[in-house]
Design a protein around this nucleic acid. Structure first.
Lengths: 346, 346
DNA sequence: CAGCGCATTGACATCGTTGAACTAGCGGTG
DNA sequence: CACCGCTAGTTCAACGATGTCAATGCGCTG
């Protein structure tokens, strides 16, 4: 590994001049610049980032803190972030928090000071803790939950997405649309559930449909998986509730619903339409394929890095957080629209 | 942020002594050690890893290079590695390679010298390139493909897993067991397919069943998804091949098979048994739930970090690579054993 | 009590880079 | 010609830790 000193010797200049060339600083004549550039190429010199960081205090590292990677949404978000970070010449240091406030804070305490920035999907953090985080390191949240803290945030169009979904179903003539995944706990960490329920309410109002409490189905746990989706729909059916459509607040719930609906001998979408939220691969591959709201993960990653860049450069409002809501896309498939009922041929 | 200098002032000793205490080096009296420890606690001092790295050349960073995170196997592997790395006090820097040799190499060129170690799932790398990688940074591969290079490797029990699966089916009385996902290209990067096919062959031999070429179904592409699984089984059926069981070389293939088999009006497992490999969540949630081979991801992560630790400490053979094959687990579910045919109640 | 060995501790240089301050040289100006 | 301003480049110190080596002090031995 050659150093700036080596390059300097070879080019017959001082190390500082090499530094200037490497960083594209002014004050170097064209001739010298060329000599240095040549020497750099000959020695295959690459500046040592560790030394640079020690001197400048700046790291090209950004932390990515997610609760876990098991849910497809998080792994696809992680993937999108990493690809986007690469375009910004940033290196991503990933940490899993398990959704635990203590772990979320510990991570910031431990690595925070040596990170250039932090992209976090906070779960357990309180408002006060969020402020602490933002004070320690330039931070962008990617969460549905709002914080009373001057932190930038990129969120999905939770409310608007479900609203559009309900509109879609209503436009197809469905009138008794069940909401699967409601949460009445009011806990801030269940914000997605709350926002999606509001979207459901909006959608009904837009379509002039009545709000029927018996169609609002809580699933009880923060884990939105197929099992709970199926169980929820079974409860509706056993209670004798009539419904002709189900909006799942997550694809996993909707896939469970799909199963339970057909288990009960009802055809999808002829008798009951089903839709989800997330647009997982599983939605495309389900049978019938599942209509879903794609949350614009790529855009979320893109915007998050733009916001973070601003913060890291100081080009961002100091005492206030910006909010960007990503565009969603309604992907209509067989579970609401009918169609061939399979995955097509080979 | 306090520095060793601050601590030293407060404890009335020299920075070097603080360094000794922090690193648990000998040659510090009990009394001094206590004073320093107290000062450290009072100032909440944490050594600056950047400065330490510059001086020692050692980083607590390990690279994790995976082709992507979209496939559940990789995201669960990533998760397991991160959790395990935390136990070893290592920080994980994740990079996605896209399975491209150029990207795999670029990553090593770029970050290699500043990483303490590298955990990689190589795809495109040649033997020579693998040697280059291992020469640059302590490396452990987690791949099915073997390399002619002195690199440690942790692999799944590809062959043994499928072999056990075939034994399981044979023991249930299935005799015409199709293999779904074969690959005859001989390309080294398709090693999992080759190994699993060998396991299939072993299993047949163990059970005294004949090798029937018409039961060996190639899917044609490296992408093992549901669509290709379904298409493969449809081809078998259309060709009039009789079979009473399907071993998919991946859960995605098996899930596609499940769909195609039932689409053809055949009951699972009464008429055709189906099994997969990977033990994804989807296998548990499928209907009927899918028998599968769990590849021991947690163990893979654990072993990989042990091997890597050895390499980083120099406690590892220099000119030879070690190989660890993780234990697999055969998870028997409804698709081979029958049973209630649903996910159980709420 | 001189002299040796051992245990503690400190001074200083150093890792590779960059910020601050300074110098050399040149042309222009009054 | 003295002086100024400007550019190109240099020197030096510093970021915060640690490796090397020297110094200090104490107890013990002969």
């Amino acid at each position: 590994m050659s150093t700036m000193h080596d390059v300097a010797l070879r080019a017959g200049v001082s190390p500082k001049t090499v530094s200037r060339v490497v960083n594209g600083e002014p004050g170097v004549s064209e001739r010298t610049r060329e000599k240095v550039t040549a020497a750099i190429a000959e020695l295959d010199f690459r500046p040592n980032p560790v030394a640079r960081n020690l001197r400048t205090g700046r790291t090209g590292l950004v932390g990515l803190a997610l609760p876990h990677l098991a849910q497809p949404y998080f792994s696809s978000l992680a993937e999108a972030i990493m690809r986007e970070a690469e375009r910004h010449d940033l290196t991503v240091l990933t940490e899993l928090t398990g959704g635990d406030a203590e772990a979320e804070l510990a991570l910031v305490r431990e690595h925070g000071p040596y990170l250039g920035g932090l992209l976090m999907y906070p779960v357990g953090l309180s408002d006060a803790q969020a402020r602490t985080v933002a004070r320690t390191v330039p931070t962008v949240f990617m969460s549905e939950r709002a914080y009373d803290a001057p932190v930038d945030r990129v969120a999905m169009a939770n409310r608007e997405g479900v609203r559009a979904m309900v509109a879609h179903m209503a436009s197809l003539g469905y009138t008794r649309i069940a909401a699967l995944g409601a949460d009445h706990s009011g806990l801030p960490e269940r914000a997605s559930a709350h926002l999606r329920l509001e979207g459901y309410r909006d959608g009904l109002r837009d379509a002039g449909l009545p709000w029927l409490p018996e169609l609002v189905c809580e699933v009880g746990t923060p884990d939105w998986d197929r099992r709970h989706g199926a169980a929820g729909v079974r409860r509706l059916i056993e209670a004798g509730v009539r419904f002709d459509a189900v909006v799942g607040f997550a694809d996993a719930l909707a896939l469970g619903a799909l199963y339970a609906v057909r288990e009960a001998g009802l055809r999808v979408p002829a008798e009951v339409a089903v839709a989800g939220f997330d647009d997982l691969d599983d939605a495309r591959y389900a049978s019938p394929s599942l209509t879903s709201v794609a949350p614009g993960t790529a855009q979320i990653a893109r915007e998050a890095l733009v916001l973070l860049n601003d913060r890291m450069n100081g080009t961002a409002p100091q005492d206030t957080g910006r909010l960007i809501v990503a565009d969603f896309e309604l992907t209509v498939r067989e579970s609401t629209l009918g169609g061939m009922g399979g995955w097509g041929g080979a």
